[in-house]
Design a protein around this nucleic acid. Structure first.
Length: 490
RNA sequence: CGGGAUGUAGCGCAGUCCGGUUAGCGUAUCUGCUUUGGGAGCAGAGGGUCGCAGGUUCGAAUCCUGCCAUCCCGACCA
């Protein structure tokens, strides 16, 4: 917990430790890249979860839960889906252990081999569509609008805390519709829900857009994503919503009787966000003093630090602090009275800043004399003294101000780091500075691939709000109708 | 899976080249006193399979062999 923390992603580890640590599974030579989310980190995730869940329900969705294990055969039904995930699946082959014959430990019981291997879900499309098959006979059974909160496992070759761990927490929505238009509308609706969540709650501005064919979800006809820019200039895909067409319905033979009396395959969507959003939150707002949390997602809104010399004085201060705490709580704020006598005030200040608590109130003998409090805001680190009777009102105003201010700062940062170019050489120079680059592209996978190979930049998305503009492809000079969003990404 | 580096106290490290007292430092922890409006000071104490397994040697954290793990760069990444 030393100073010199930086908001650059490479150096996050010091205060990442407040939220999450890499799981210590060193004795196991196989499991790697798993994380332990500590209580404070998990509290932030719970806040995010609660808000997202509310938004899903407001848009007509309900929660359900499907199994962790998926029979291997389910995967072979949708060809491109398995191709996308096959290389990163954990496979269960046995169901029992026994004492080893030499008496030295435990071994897998080779008699307990499963007839068909089970796959630990990397995503749940296959098992859900296998289930939906039994639930859908008629157009009257549609739409099905289900969300699941779960963990998934993807055996990534290289992991990074929050951004890409072997096991992560997420939600996945899986919907079934009677017609294409409705499914398409659902896909767009959910990418908008995600964008609202990031901008209004996480205070992280995003670009909504469609993925190129290469970057598309395995098995999808169209993938929408939201792309956020981190403080180190790299892009982060923060959420996706997929239009699956009839691919999964065909793979799992999910037909329904239409209103017209014919049989048709069901139209599908899926959409998800994960604990990666925590990474986004951290990397978008943090500064050298640690985390900066938007008030709407902070587990603790206000911390009150008493300043005193003798324990009698603490009791006296508590007489003022406890009513203030109660009043703040009655306004809906979560308040922590940090009355620990084991650390000094300066230590508490630093610690709460590290944790990103939006507002700090300090009360000491000086304030008792003058009837004042000192209020400090985390985003600007500004401290001011106010009359005691204005404290509650001031805190309430500050919450809105902080929420707005960090969103505005993030937007300004993105604006300052979004560039436009028509020259490939300039494009390469710009990439070194980081940030988003708007450029023309001829629409082919070959060009996309070549640019990626030569520059490590990928097409993050084809922004939904891009205006028509004729131009020439950055690389090939072929005609293009609008600019697309390039960046180096996580 | 390729290239590079690393593994020594909870955390961060020195010591390894060139084998040789009881393996050391910072920090954290515990005790006492003084402190307390921005990460306290002094004194004392506890804490180690030196990644694992073999080998060489009178003697191994140090040399040799094998294995394991971690990190970085690639490959990979809805």
């Amino acid at each position: 917990m030393s100073k010199g923390i930086t908001s650059r992603a490479e150096n996050y580890s010091q205060w990442y430790n407040e939220l999450v640590v890499k799981a210590d599974l060193a004795d196991n030579s196989v499991v790697r890249g798993c994380m332990v989310i500590k209580p404070y980190g998990y509290a932030i995730w719970e806040k995010m979860q609660a808000q997202l869940d509310k938004m899903f329900k407001e848009t007509g969705h309900v929660n359900a839960y499907f199994p962790l294990f998926i029979p291997k055969s389910f995967f072979s039904r949708e060809a491109s889906h398995v191709e996308g995930f096959a290389k990163e699946c954990a496979v269960v082959t046995h169901y029992r252990l026994k004492n080893s014959s030499d008496g030295k430990g435990i071994v897998v019981d080779s008699d307990a081999r499963l007839e068909e291997e089970l796959i630990v879900r990397p995503t749940s499309e296959t098992i859900i569509w296998n289930t939906y098959k039994d639930w859908i006979q008629s157009y009257r059974d549609l739409p099905i609008l289900i969300n699941q909160w779960a963990n998934v496992v993807r055996w990534e070759m290289r992991t990074r805390l929050f951004l890409r761990t072997a096991e992560f927490l997420w939600q996945e929505g899986h919907t079934a519709h009677a017609d294409k238009e409705e499914a398409l509308a659902e896909t767009v609706k959910m990418i908008n829900v995600y964008a609202d969540f990031l901008e209004k709650y996480m205070a992280v501005p995003v670009i909504k857009g469609r993925k190129t064919e290469k970057e598309r979800f395995a098995g999808a006809l169209d993938t929408y994503s939201i792309e956020a820019l981190m403080q180190d200039g790299k892009a982060l895909q923060a959420g996706t919503s997929h239009f699956l067409g009839q691919n999964f319905a065909k793979a799992f033979d999910v037909k329904f009787a239409t209103r017209q009396g014919t049989l048709d395959y069901v139209w599908a969507t899926s959409w998800g966000v994960s604990t990666r959003l925590m990474g986004a939150l951290i990397m978008a707002h943090s500064d050298d003093n640690g985390l900066v949390l938007p008030p709407k997602l902070a587990p603790i809104h206000v911390v009150i630090v008493p300043i005193y010399q003798k324990t009698e004085q603490l009791a006296q201060l508590a007489e003022t602090i406890l009513p203030l705490k109660k009043e703040l709580e009655s306004k809906g704020w979560t308040v922590k009275f940090d009355d620990r006598d084991t650390v000094k005030p300066g230590f508490k200040f630093a610690e709460h800043e590290l944790k990103g608590i939006p507002v700090r109130i300090a009360i000491g003998p000086r304030d008792m004399e003058n009837g004042t409090v000192e209020i400090a805001r985390r985003d600007t680190l500004e401290k001011k003294v106010y009359p005691m009777n204005e404290a509650v009102e001031r805190v309430t105003c500050l919450m809105d101000e902080i929420q707005e201010n960090i969103f505005r700062k993030a937007k300004e940062f993105r604006k300052a780091n979004t560039r436009q170019t028509d020259s490939y050489d300039e494009f390469k120079e710009m990439l070194e500075k980081g940030g988003f680059i708007m450029a023309h592209w001829d629409g082919t996978g070959e060009t996309e691939e070549r640019i990626k190979e030569e520059t490590k930049a990928t097409i993050r998305c084809l922004p939904l709000d891009a205006s028509e503009e004729t131009g020439k492809c950055l690389l090939t000079g072929k005609p293009s109708q609008r600019r697309v969003l390039f960046a180096r990404s996580y």
